[in-house]
């Protein structure tokens, strides 16, 4: 295989992994605050349709990215109001957010079906992009890829190196104690949920502006659920989410190459391989139970009603 082909394959892997990485990073922050939002798929598809639509109408893909982030965050608000202010069941509310998102996106998107999309073009750093094997991988990718790397580093730094991150973890581990210390638990959770929505929206924009620049109903095809699973199997650690997302992308692409090479393994098994491999690897690296216990937000999924 020539270096060009290897680089092309690696680029495909990165493209497949990026939306998962972004959505999972957002959900990680949400869950670290003690809230389980199963609406990732719904927020993601809202991001995909609004991103595509805004880019179509204005002709600028950046307007699309911005619209997707804002709409993703706004769309998470009903979930926040219901589960935080009204203390409804988070699982049921999250599921309905997904259903609602799929339906609303289909309705908004009806006018965009069948239109060739506006592509968010790759950034090419002159000269550096021509380095064999790694040039395009490091210096010639779409802007959302660079955002995703910044996001991963930022989330890690925020959670483990800032006071605000400590507050977030405190709220997720024991909302009662955090409340007693004078932390506004609900405000922290509102912000976390909206951050998760913004990330899911951005992930959706990656789908409809970079991955496959078009709008079709249900185009997320379950990627929100994979992002959710990644967070749990990565035991709420940002670095492991990164590993999990790229591993999933790599195995997804590798199995297509194996098929194209005519490898004699049943294709049904190959199709399941990304899921199996990612789960197995993440479970293995998370097998230190004390470490996992320490990172699991103890208040995850529990509603908090402040006593006044």
């Amino acid at each position: 295989m020539s270096p060009d082909v290897i680089q092309a394959i690696l680029l495909t892997v990165v493209t497949a992994a990026t939306p998962l990485l972004i959505a999972a990073m957002g959900e990680l922050v949400v869950e670290r605050s003690g809230v389980l939002n199963l609406g990732v798929e719904g927020m993601m598809i809202i991001g995909a349709v609004t991103g595509f639509g805004a880019a179509q109408i204005t002709g600028s893909p950046w307007a699309g990215v911005l619209a997707a982030i804002i709409c993703g965050a706004l769309f998470s608000l009903p979930f926040a109001v219901l589960t935080l202010s009204l203390a409804t069941n988070q699982v049921a509310t999250g599921l309905s957010l997904t259903l609602l998102g799929l339906g609303v996106a289909g309705m908004i998107g009806e006018q965009f079906v069948g239109l060739p999309g506006v592509r968010l073009e790759a950034v090419n750093v002159p000269f550096l992009v021509d380095i064999p094997l790694i040039g395009r991988l490091l210096f010639g990718q779409d802007p959302i890829f660079y955002l995703s790397i910044g996001l991963a580093v930022g989330v890690w730094w925020f959670i483990f190196r800032t006071r605000a991150g400590l507050t977030l973890r405190a709220v997720g581990d024991s909302h009662g104690s955090a409340h007693a210390l004078g932390i506004n638990v609900l405000r922290v959770r509102y912000l976390a949920v909206m951050f998760g929505g913004a990330c899911a929206g951005l992930a959706g924009a990656h789908l409809s502006l970079v991955y496959i620049p078009q709008w079709v109903e249900n185009m997320t095809a379950g990627r929100g659920w994979i992002a959710l699973a990644l967070v749990v199997f990565a035991s709420w650690l940002p670095l492991r989410v990164v590993i999990g997302a790229y591993l999933f992308g790599a195995v997804t692409i590798a199995q297509f190459h194996a098929q194209a090479q005519g490898v004699a393994i049943p294709s049904q098994l190959l199709s399941a391989l990304p899921y199996l491999a990612t789960i197995v690897v993440l479970v293995l690296i998370s097998s230190n139970r004390r470490m996992t216990m320490r990172n699991t937000p103890a208040s995850l999924g529990k509603p908090f009603v402040p006593d006044r």
Binding site: A8, T12, Y211, M219, A221, I253, F256, H257, A260, Q261
Partner: peptide
């Protein structure tokens, strides 16, 4: 669409 695109890219790279 995502998977179909991935499969297309893999085939072209092959």
């Amino acid at each position: 669409p995502g998977k179909e695109a991935d499969a297309a890219k893999a085939l072209i790279d092959q």
